[in-house]
Design a protein around this nucleic acid. Sequence first.
RNA 1: GCCGGAAUGGCGGAAUUGGUAGACGCAGCGGACUCAAAAUCCGCCGCCUAAACAGCGUGCCGGUUCGAGUCCGGCUUCCGGCACCA
Length: 858
Amino acid sequence: MSDVQERYSPQSVEKEAQAYWDGTGSFRVTEDPAKPKYYCLSMFPYPSGKLHMGHVRNYTIGDVLTRYYRMRGYNVLQPMGWDAFGLPAENAAMANKVPPAKWTYDNIAYMRTQLKSLGFAIDWTRELATCSPSYYKWNQWLFVRLFKKGLAYKKTGVVNWDPVDQTVLANEQVIDGKGWRTGAVVEKREIPMYFLRISAYAEELLSALDGMTGWPEQVKLMQKNWIGKSEGVRFGFPYELNGEAKRLNVFTTRADTIMGVTFCAVAAEHPLAAHAAQGNPALAKFVDECRQGAVIEAEMAQQEKKGMPTGLSVTHPLSGEQVPVWVGNYVLMSYGDGAVMGVPAHDERDYEFATKYGLPIKPVIRHALGDTVPLPWKPEYAEYGTNINSGKYDGLDFRASVNAVAADLKAKDLGAKHVQWRLRDWGISRQRYWGCPVPIIHCKDCGDVPVPEEDLPVVLPEDLVPDGTGNPLNKLPSFYECKCPACGSPARRETDTMDTFVDSSWYFARYACPDNDKAMVDERAQYWMAVDQYIGGIEHAILHLLYSRFFMRVMRDEKMLEVTEPFTNLLTQGMVLAELYYHDTPEGRREWINPADVTVVRDQKGRVTSAKRASDGAPVVSAGIGTMSKSKNNGVDPQALIEKYGADTARFFIIFTSPPTQSLEWSDEGVEGSFRFLKRVWNYGAAFGKPGGKTPSPELLKATRFEIHSVLKQANYDLGKHQFNTVASASMKILNALEKLQDSSCEEAREGVSILLRLLSPITPHLCHHLWKALGFGDDILKAPWPEPDPKALEQDEIDYVVQVGGKTRGSLKAPKSADRPALEALVTASSLVQKYATGQAIRKIVIVPGRLINVVV
RNA sequence: GCCGGAAUGGCGGAAUUGGUAGACGCAGCGGACUCAAAAUCCGCCGCCUAAACAGCGUGCCGGUUCGAGUCCGGCUUCCGGCACCA
């Protein structure tokens, strides 16, 4: 007999389970050499105010893994913290006149209660926030070490400049090339800033990808392309400037086309462009135009390709011919030397540029379509081939030609083979307040002096309110006035803060030892690292993950940890989407309506024909589906969901509706369905042990065991693949099978429900915790072993073969398990299916897939 | 523009390695219970068809194979990233 209340009341069940876990300290973990460790980490949230559905999804996926591995006998760490510095806090501060610190801490407090209400198996004793001095002290400490080693250094970088507010803008604050607050056209401006030399690790970051078998191929490929290793030739075009011999350096992967160069192009920011513009007002105007707009690469890549001649020319290093130099807005100053050789015959961009400006086009490669390159551009023009019109290089293929050209350039001391990376050093300076202060002091005499270790941390004052006109630290003498640590004379403290990606590049190691105030990490981090499973959004596939891989290597080389890759396995979860509805007001304004306020009208077959606003019946237009966002007003508040249905329903719906890596489409009806299922589980538990109306037949008992154990076998396989949605459906199938028995007093039902509760417990832990105890299986389902299928239950005497005739499925055929190939051939040839569908035709062969399928080929 | 993905019923999705396409659920339709409603339970549910064990069907075009949602080539549309949103 069970001890379960009649009605499923998630609120009381969840409160009770959470109180039990808190009281017993269930999720506190320490280093335990007796068990294999499993570090399960979800990307920490930015404390934006309240949890959004993406958070709930992320942490539910992590929690399913945490609880599953725990029941498998691992020592599992699942921590939580806050990525607490960042721009939104400053925006909120401006809007509400509240310091970013207060806003941030309030948000953390609220979001923590939300996370706790979801029942995640988190070790809360390890909680950290990146805005706390005890955390960011170590950002500063590491920065100083890197600065002394030359891995952190100062140079100029380009930023978005709002000429009205006289301030630097984040890319996000630039809308269509204009400042978000002022509407002024944004300009590119060069300012001094600090960089981390990630390029020193480019080769290692690239080559290590091959060994990272626990990462999705797509993410590794994106990182590989981002790092962008190109092998080619770097060489100079000699020229004279004010009587001085100089070189215009370029890099090319197509040195075989060097005899086809008809122009050179430099970026607008290139020194040669600046020089030429001095005596040329038209060019000066063009260079200035190129400075207009934001630094966002996507925008620059899509603008129309424009250029202007500088009037200068350089000497071709091999032919000695004069080559005109142009300024091109498509040349990136940030890649290579900010200059390119122009070979219009064999490069699409150069072709377009030369065609537009009437520059000569000289074919030097024989391609699949011939020796000429008539309009329009064809991809074949860019393919490798044999040199023509290239003097001594004629007849050489790509490889031989590149080798010969490189050798000749080297002999003239004008160039050599060179590896060029796309990856740039990481600019970490931000001209903003709410971040980790860069620990540098500027002294007139000593230059940039790092803050001595004993003076760390440089504490950020927490009571300032930014007003949109730049960093308030610049107006706070008590912050920036200081003494030079080297010579003691008055000096000025750096007011730039660090990119928040610095904070998030090592937090995972700090969770192992958040209380250590003597060291960044200690031997406990050596025990827990690397993270066994990292879970987070695909939008972090490049930057955050690459920076973390870089930091791990830096920490390794600083002899802090013997770990190279921070994340052994990576799961990139999909986005959370919801329906979009809008209606246009009579004034022509588009108003987005929250899907919760929309009623849909369906036809006889259940198809949606129209929709209207619930409040007033006004017709609304469906705009498909999209990511949940404030601007489209299609967010669903997790809090309302938890209050109405409980955490288990929210968790079950999220797991059941999509596999973790795919996007998840929100559906209120789907939530109802999940709740209905959990109610059925509850009701089954409430009536459990009472004899049913019928006594099940031995055949039914055997079939039920077969069903439950095959479903379990499949579910365990799916868990290994992290395909949790089918694990949720497996639990539904098991309940369906149990209910069909119509008797829960038998041993088969008891075994079945014990499997069901354990299989379901990582997904809906509260419900399973309660029923496990109430049905007398034990005190704590967390301590139960993970269920394994019984091979005996899976044994079958007969196998159902699919029968195909000529590759078309025509039916099935039962055959004894022991039937061998000749026996199966005889059976199928004699079967009515073959008689019917292959009448009078000669059988050419019979394909047999053991245990599955027979195909009779006619 | 460049880099990386995705596309299966009215909807979310399933199909282990190339082997019965549509598991499980939602919506819909029909029924039971009820004075009635809600809740619950039972049945039906890709398209075509009067019906079918016939034919068609996994975004589009083509190919490989006894057999293709799955592999190959070429498109289309949508999504993520592009270095200062996190």
